[in-house]
């Protein structure tokens, strides 16, 4: 069975006819060609596919595209603007908070969702928010520090 899905991703509206079994992750990557969002395990364990769906952080591999009809999705491609990094992106750059970079899009989304939900997070809040994002390279400390710096500046918000 195929269904029409209307979805807004990073402020742009899309419409596509997709099979019922297609995940949001595969729709983003294979139908909309937004490949910034990664697949690391496909069973909701690693967080590489984290996106913000209607304001909530989800593993896009665990959500069906048909469930997202009428929804608003944000991915790494919507973080910051062309040639202007968001504060979070800039903090990740400044802190060397990435190595291979494969988990970075998911990390940024998890951090963004936290800062919107809680603009003044404690260290425990940050760790809790990042705990679902597996990173094999960095050991997390630099990413936590990047989020901490943005939070302390107290001006969480995209670069737009």
């Amino acid at each position: 069975m195929e269904y029409d899905v209307r979805i807004t991703v990073n402020g742009e509206r899309y419409q596509a006819r997709v099979p019922a079994s297609l995940t949001l992750l595969r729709m983003l990557r294979e139908v909309l060609h937004l490949t910034g969002t990664k697949e690391g395990c496909s069973i909701g364990e690693c967080g590489a596919c984290s996106v913000i769906l209607d304001g909530k952080l989800v593993n896009a591999c665990m959500v069906l595209a048909v469930e997202c009809d009428g929804s608003v999705v944000r991915t790494v491609e919507g973080e910051g603007a062309m040639d202007k990094l968001s504060d979070l992106q800039q903090a990740f750059v400044d802190n060397h908070a990435l190595q291979c970079g494969f988990c970075t899009p998911g990390m940024l989304m998890a951090a963004r969702e936290l800062l919107e939900r809680k603009p003044d997070p404690t260290d425990d809040d940050i760790i809790e928010a990042m705990a679902g994002q597996i990173c094999r390279c960095t050991g997390y400390e630099t990413a936590i520090e990047a989020v901490r710096r943005v939070a302390r500046k107290g001006q969480a918000g995209g670069g737009k």
Partner: peptide, 13 residues
């Protein structure tokens, strides 16, 4: 800063 940082924080990598 890392030479690959910009690509990797924007999803362009």
């Amino acid at each position: 800063e890392r030479i690959d940082a910009l690509d990797k924080v924007t999803g362009a990598a």
